[in-house]
Design a binder for these strands. Structure first.
Lengths: 177, 177
DNA sequence: CAGTATCCTGTCCGATACTG
DNA sequence: CAGTATCGGACAGGATACTG
């Protein structure tokens, strides 16, 4: 990247983006959750060049998202499996999946989450683990953490942040104010 | 991109990735939720070139994530505000935020979500909106949607998919060096 | 089968200059 | 202030060839 490098950024979102780096990385992680572990299977599933796959796989290992697990010594062969950190990425994939299903399915959905007991399709929401309440509840707010500084801190303290707030629909003919 | 183009892919995750395209896009969306709406403010917040910002902003408008709202006619000026689709992207940002906070904060967290009533820090989880149960419950599973085909369908039907399943810890790699 | 090495190309991005 | 136009560099990703 010749972008100024996200590592200089303290934002956790930017950091995460830096870690998963390129798009293929996320798709590879998706495939890991689909049970794929072998080089060849990744290649077949993704339609990615062997070359590029090597680079992405190495990057993910280096990022601590994947781990090599030898299954043969002669010749040396290994599976690529998710580390704890890699498994922690799951909610991001679920969120991407939900968004894609809600917004981008001209010809119908290809993957859905269903509740086996009812057969109903699941609508994923993000909630607070402890209270079970959706994060949109007014009681929740973004706050500066210990390492926050400058403009970030100010913006967070001002309460103007809308990541946890319902927003008016601009297309719904709301007066422009 | 000279990648084969995700649009050929039917996976909702791949589609979403195609939509938000480049990394700056996601950071721009993040800033939109932070209440930023003006070209200049994006530039200052992101440290991005005016040139690049224009391109990303145009792409996001074209993708239906942002909308231009004129606030001046002479000269023509507009705010960039989230559309419904753009606001639908919120859970992805929350998931990225949570991941970054959990995994990538060597010097401490910069942004946290807190419960105002208790002061406790919030741990976000993804649950089924209807039942309130975490998606890891065995009753939930991925299933092929109406438009699923081929290998995707087979893999989903085989039940081997682990996106909604707890996975064994592979001896665990901590942060790789 | 499971990769690595090399070369090439597209394009994302940054810097700079310019406009109303 | 809010952008657009143009140029150049870095790098992700593709194609191909090669190894054990």
């Amino acid at each position: 990247m010749q972008r100024k490098s996200f590592s200089e950024m303290t934002c956790p979102i930017a950091r995460t983006l830096e870690l998963v780096g390129e798009w293929w990385s996320i798709l590879i992680l998706r495939d890991c959750f689909a049970g794929i572990r072998r080089f060849d299977d990744f290649q077949a599933s993704l339609g990615i060049g062997a070359n590029t796959l090597t680079r992405r796989l190495n990057a993910l290992v280096e990022a601590g998202m994947l781990e090599r697990r030898p299954y043969s010594a002669h010749p040396p062969r290994h599976d690529y499996v998710l580390t704890r950190r890699g498994r922690d990425f799951r909610p991001v994939l679920l969120a991407l999946l939900a968004f894609g299903n809600n917004e981008l399915t001209p010809e119908g959905e290809t993957v859905v989450i269903v509740d086996s007991t009812t057969g109903a399709q699941v609508d994923p929401v993000v909630v607070d683990r402890r209270s079970g309440l959706p994060l949109m509840e007014p009681r929740f707010r973004l706050a500066p953490g210990p390492a926050a500084k400058g403009a970030t801190r100010e913006r967070l303290e001002s309460g103007r942040h809308e990541l946890l707030r319902p927003m008016p629909d601009p297309t719904d003919a709301g007066p422009a104010t």
